[in-house]
Design a protein around this nucleic acid. Structure first.
Lengths: 205, 205
DNA sequence: GACCCCATCTTTCCACTGTAAAGATTTTTT
DNA sequence: AAAAAATCTTTACAGTGGAAAGATGGGGTC
């Protein structure tokens, strides 16, 4: 039922979306450790057990939030790709920088995504979202090396190498153990570029 | 007071150490998310507020546990170094493999260490432990490149590159998004070696 | 050796958390 | 129109960390 323009129904009408929106706000405000179902429900103005019907238990809500997170990670990487100089290497760099953009702009969500207690269930929307993020990276590596990287052992190593480097950098920055060069965003980008490509292969010995 | 050989005093006598020991067991058993002060206290057989006097609040206990964690991380890296072929490059590889050993053998502790809500306080024992871990890595990089890496921008990049790669790999494996080659430990070591040294520098373009 | 101070630990209480169960209200279906 | 299903609320409960005040005993001083 609607009164005026507002929906004042006993049933909320769009509670699932509202809870997810509020959940993201709470996550950003309090972090993953201070995340509270009751507070999310209160923010929406609904009883604290209302989310259960849509998400099962707390971990269900967490997973639904993580799905959103992966989609925004994809958006961050694609955004950087679109703005990059359109050579395969620059697009690869840009993909990693987008990964870092996401971690820095939504640290709590980043931690949520990669701190899930168990790996996404087979066939779940969460798994699909996570896979789509992986494919953005894999595709960028594929363009860089000229063939599908997932078809060879060397290619798979290169994809994982790119991923682990961007991820390790993001995670250690969020931990506070690595300081980002502050100020000019260009410095930050150069820092990432150097770190990604740094040569650690055996030399003389 | 002592009866037999056992200390049965009202005062525990060595409660701080006992709580830390129990805390590690609880951490390993329940993970960082399911960590409970009360359960730790119960495991020691003491009231649930007893830890407060030694550690302040829960985060104080967490930090004290993290200090232990860093020291065992150091031990893991040094153990691998000692077992490695004694060339600078092999020692560097071994250091990273020790990092991974630690993450895999104590995943909850690894997550605890790098998930601290805020960076270690200046002058704290935790900071010293974290620094000692960093220095093990920095020293290995220094031996590899022939000079103190922290004296030049390129050197610092190399240290961070090594760290972020090992860390990203460890964290993504613990997240379940990257599968370790199971079975032969030699395969695991080769996997790490390939990932660390993989070349992602610009090619023709 | 007697005494007092204080570090240590316990008891009790409180606000907060997530979940289960049962009831109330609205929508949908039959 | 009646029945069924979905949605949300109320209530209750076991668990959490922390604050406050009381109990206990060790260590220092006289």
């Amino acid at each position: 039922m609607t009164v005026d323009g507002k929906s004042t129904t006993y049933h909320h009408g769009d509670l699932r979306r509202a809870i997810l929106d509020a959940g993201e706000e709470e996550l950003a405000a309090r972090g993953v450790a201070g995340f509270s179902l009751r507070r999310v429900a209160a923010r929406v103005g609904v009883s604290h057990t209302a989310p259960a019907h849509h998400f099962g238990d707390a971990s269900g809500l967490i997973e639904a939030l993580a799905e959103r997170g992966f989609l925004r990670l994809v958006a961050c990487m694609q955004d950087r790709q679109a703005r990059a100089i359109q050579t395969p290497y620059e697009r690869l760099i840009a993909t990693g920088q987008g990964y870092l953009d996401f971690a820095l702009s939504e640290p709590a969500m980043f931690r949520l995504i990669f701190g899930l207690s168990d790996t996404p269930k087979e066939g779940s929307a969460l798994q699909a979202a996570a896979l789509s993020a992986f494919l953005v990276l894999a595709r960028a590596v594929g363009e860089f090396r000229g063939q599908d990287p997932m078809q060879s052992a060397e290619g798979r190593i290169e994809v994982l190498a790119c991923w682990t480097r961007a991820h390790g950098m993001a995670d250690l920055i969020l931990s506070g153990y690595i300081d980002l060069p502050d100020g000019d965003p260009a410095e930050r980008d150069a820092f990432f570029r150097n770190l990604l490509a740094a040569d650690l292969s055996p030399r003389d010995t």
